[in-house]
Computed example of a mutant assay.
Amino acid sequence: MANNEAGIATKQKIIYYSKLLFYKNGFNKTTLKNICEAAEIPRTNLFHYFKDKTDIASFLTNDINNRFYGCVNQEIEARHYGGDLIQKGCTCIAAFFLSVMSDPKLNRFFSEIYLNHTGVIPGNDFYLSVFRTLYKAAKKNPETLEFKLFYITNTACQGEFLRQFMSGELNAPSTECVSYFLNQLLIGLSVPEEDKSIIAETAIRLSGQLKTSFLEVFWTEPDLKME
């Protein structure tokens, strides 16, 4: 029991200081040595829990996004915003992007990990689940090549999307950028043309009314005892 609690505490420290350094200095400039020094643990201890820096980022993005989307879904239902699964999914996606794009350090963190590791998309389990749900909600079969291409297309571009917004290359308000992003997503779901703009506009409007804070979820530590 004591050893288990010590292990949980060590993993919690690794997660916390990784997140702190990724946020403060960026994913690219943070090293495993930096993380171990901040957490005051030997480097060998870190490898009991994570195989490399990308593995840490994957754990973080899966955990943070799952908790954020869970909170957003609960709030949508509690506040009786309604909407089908596609509308709810788009609202969650809009809330994520608008939150990240409003904080330069968050934007840098997510753009760097998505750009550097599109082959093993950090948060892969989470995104696969989200896009499967959206695909099924559109009454389409996720066990097809079409779904795989839809999934790759809509995840691989996220890093460049955030990078160009951060650098000013997009030169447009975040709401306009997210609206376009959602419209491209809805094309892949074969949503009728007349419905796309309504879904995207509603998603952006509802995301602005949510009380759920992405930054608050970002800094809340995961309950490792539940793993």
Score class of each variant (00 low, 15 high):
residue 18 S to W: 00
residue 84 D to R: 12
residue 182 L to E: 00
residue 223 D to N: 13
residue 77 E to L: 14
residue 206 L to W: 15
residue 57 A to M: 07
residue 104 P to Y: 02
residue 67 R to F: 12
residue 105 K to L: 07
residue 184 Q to C: 09
residue 136 K to F: 03
residue 203 A to N: 02
residue 104 P to A: 07
residue 167 S to Q: 06
residue 73 N to S: 15
residue 50 F to G: 01
residue 176 E to M: 07
residue 77 E to G: 10
residue 151 Y to C: 03
residue 119 G to E: 15
residue 119 G to T: 13
residue 134 L to E: 01
residue 56 I to Q: 01
residue 177 C to V: 08
residue 166 M to S: 09
residue 125 D to S: 12
residue 143 E to F: 09
residue 39 A to S: 12
residue 123 G to M: 09
residue 210 L to T: 06
residue 83 G to M: 01
residue 167 S to I: 04
residue 101 M to N: 02
residue 96 F to E: 10
residue 218 F to C: 04
residue 62 N to E: 06
residue 42 P to R: 05
residue 153 T to F: 06
residue 94 A to W: 02
residue 124 N to Q: 15
residue 128 L to T: 11
residue 181 F to R: 12
residue 23 Y to W: 05
residue 137 A to P: 09
residue 119 G to V: 13
residue 68 F to E: 06
residue 193 E to Q: 10
residue 150 F to C: 01
residue 183 N to A: 07
residue 109 F to H: 00
residue 189 L to K: 07
residue 54 T to W: 03
residue 211 K to A: 15
residue 217 V to Y: 04
residue 185 L to M: 14
residue 110 F to G: 00
residue 80 H to P: 14
residue 76 I to Q: 05
residue 168 G to D: 03
residue 33 K to R: 07
residue 193 E to S: 09
residue 131 F to H: 12
residue 80 H to W: 10
residue 32 L to G: 02
residue 160 E to M: 09
residue 213 S to R: 04
residue 152 I to V: 14
residue 55 D to T: 03
residue 179 S to F: 08
residue 99 S to I: 08
residue 206 L to V: 14
residue 24 K to T: 10
residue 65 N to G: 01
residue 171 N to A: 08
residue 103 D to A: 11
residue 146 E to H: 14
residue 199 I to K: 05
residue 23 Y to E: 02
residue 162 L to I: 03
residue 211 K to L: 13
residue 5 E to S: 12
residue 109 F to R: 00
residue 23 Y to F: 08
residue 48 H to N: 09
residue 29 K to W: 01
residue 4 N to G: 12
residue 201 E to T: 15
residue 165 F to Q: 00
residue 31 T to A: 05
